[in-house]
Amino acid sequence: MAKKSLCAWQDLALGAAILAPGSAAKLKTGDWRTLIPRLDEDKCIKCGMCELYCPEFCISEGKDGFFRPNFAYCKGCGICANECPKQAIAMVMEEK
């Protein structure tokens, strides 16, 4: 079947510009993941290196001071686990 258009041409913004900043957040890239980071809270020192080095910009500090990824976006690359100075993050096969 032929692919459908996303919208009528009359509804496109001028020059097909995109007017909603950061709208890519609608796209949940979490389903790209095969491995999932698991945090060992006993080992974690809450340094936040995982947040700094996350290419999905999806790790943030929670109220309890621990840094955790938003799994809606985490692609499971494993950089956070690799860079954790205390080896508090393990990449494990995600059960879906």
Partner: peptide
């Protein structure tokens, strides 16, 4: 008022973008 100009025209929108300009 940040706007993204010149985004990737995926096949589902390229045609509409061209049509807008032609019109």
């Amino acid at each position: 008022k940040p706007v993204t100009m010149g985004p990737v025209g995926v096949p589902e929108v390229y045609l509409e973008a061209k049509k807008q300009c032609e019109q």
